[in-house]
């Protein structure tokens, strides 16, 4: 797993989020983990394929999801993680991954991305790799967004 593959995703976050009115995201922890990630409550998986194949997961708590949705909707209060808020998170995941795809193309990796799949629940596990995946913790105005990236070797 090549650690430089984290950059297109982190850069996407730093480009896209401030345009939507978020404070500048800060990169916190970065690491390599094996096989399975634990969901924080709301996890959006976006797959990609073509010259490299893999998955990215945007993993966050429901509180963080509500904060992000509220900021995206111009500060409208979001008390419940309802359809509209879910739609905002899904849209953000799509925008971030599309932007990352452009960054990957700049590194010589052309990819097509799938539609986002949002999964909601308590205590579930997500496996995106048979081997290892990269994980980055981002801080957005005091809220944590975890990004897990796996590139398949086959």
């Amino acid at each position: 797993m090549d650690a430089k593959l984290v950059n297109p995703f982190v850069d996407a976050l730093k480009t896209v989020l401030p345009q939507m009115g978020f404070p500048e995201p800060e990169r916190k922890a970065i690491g390599v983990k094996a096989k399975t990630a634990s969901s924080l409550g709301v996890s959006v998986i976006v797959g990609f394929t073509k010259s490299i194949r893999g998955n990215v997961v945007y993993n966050m708590s429901e509180d963080t999801a509500k904060f992000i949705a509220s900021t995206m909707m111009m500060g409208m209060p979001v008390d419940e993680f309802n359809d509209m808020a879910q739609s905002a998170i899904s849209e953000m995941s799509n925008m971030l991954t599309a932007n990352a795809a452009t960054n990957l193309a700049g590194m010589g990796f052309e990819v097509d991305i799938s539609t986002p799949s949002m999964t909601i629940g308590e205590n579930f596990q997500i496996k995106i790799s048979d081997d290892q995946y990269l994980t980055v913790g981002m801080d957005i105005g005091g809220h944590e967004l975890e990004i897990d990236i796996a590139v398949s070797t086959q």
């Binding site: 998986i45 998955n55 997961v57 899904s90 999964t119 909601i120 629940g121 308590e122 596990q125 496996k127």
Partner: peptide, 11 residues
């Protein structure tokens, strides 16, 4: 991407 757990909603 494989999800494992109980009472999970895939939107």
């Amino acid at each position: 991407g494989t999800i494992c757990g109980q009472h999970i909603r895939i939107v």
